[in-house]
Design a protein around this nucleic acid. Structure first.
Lengths: 176, 176
DNA sequence: TTAACCATCACGTTGCGTGATTGTAG
DNA sequence: CCTACAATCACGCAACGTGATGGTTA
């Protein structure tokens, strides 16, 4: 009779060796035999069981459920009920994911708007309206650069100013 | 200043105490103070940080990512990039779930069809076509019941026969 | 004193992945 | 002898939940 080693079987089903070891450990899928040295030996019938397991796994059923479905005598357990339960879970999960989508979309929109609302021109206008002139702004840049160069850089970047211009501003700011 | 205990804050945000303990443990969200006895004391500013964390959490971002976004100085980290990455993850997950839906739907349909295809009438017809008569069928039931009562019951159920009729059949089957 | 808080471990969950160490087949 | 397998621990991950044990507060 044909037999398979653990890695061979794993590759055949696109699983990893450790996955099969795990299935063995939880009593879901064990080799029906061992060699004298203790190597697992899988038969064609084992292979069929694994095929079934993989099909169930692709429905997202938990392994404990799959184990239960397969250990109880042929289709005594209400497989259909388990599948229908899983269907409703999937529905709930999809709804949740869509909520997340909408939330993220809203957050991205907000971020974009805010980035548009307070940009370089807007900031300058605000300072000017507050009575600051060119010389005052230069003094302000120098002060900012002296106190916290990192935050200065970050602030300029937050206004959407290009890296090159930022470098230029910071150069003359530090030439006190 | 107003301050909050851990359980109060948890309830306010619909979280559990252990969740906040966990956030503290991983360095995502800690109380800014403690009482003499070691009790955590949260301030209104802590409360604001927790609010932000909760918003991010509702997008499904991993806590490690949220921690990163909040620990780096204001919006230096590309929040937008993280959100967009999360968006694509969500898309992939939804696709996967829909695949599962389709698979389950197919399996349920198959199960229903099979249940419909081989029912009581069909089975009797097949046996009759094979040359079995009433007496033969009764002998067959008795033999089945004698060899494996459990499987007999299960087989009859698999043909869609009502529990009451199954009981009846098995009663006269065992009256050998 | 009692009840309802609080604190800090430490371990369980799900489905594996990743070594470490050691043995075996060819 | 070397390489590619095999085996069995044991620990790590995410995001908490669930006790155990003991101190604190009203």
């Amino acid at each position: 009779m044909k037999s398979f080693s653990i890695s061979t079987l794993a590759r055949e089903f696109g699983l990893s060796r450790s996955t099969l070891l795990y299935y063995d450990q939880i009593g879901l899928f064990s080799a029906s035999g061992r060699t004298a040295a203790g190597y697992r030996v899988f038969t064609v019938e084992d292979r069929r069981r694994l095929e079934t397991i993989c099909r169930y796994r692709q429905t997202g059923l938990p392994l404990s459920e799959i184990k239960h479905l397969m250990s109880s005598p042929k289709s005594k357990a209400p497989i259909g009920a388990a599948l229908r339960k899983r269907l409703s879970e999937i529905g709930a999960q999809i709804l949740d994911l869509k909520k997340q989508q909408r939330l993220i979309a809203a957050m991205l929109k907000n971020a974009d708007e805010q980035r548009g609302i307070v940009d370089k021109a807007c900031w300058i206008e605000m300072l000017r309206a507050a009575g600051m002139d060119e010389a005052g702004m230069m003094r302000w840049h120098r002060e900012f650069e002296r106190r916290s160069p990192g935050d200065h850089h970050e602030f300029l970047a937050s206004l959407g100013i290009e890296e090159a211009e930022i470098q230029s501003i910071r150069r003359w700011s530090s030439l006190a």
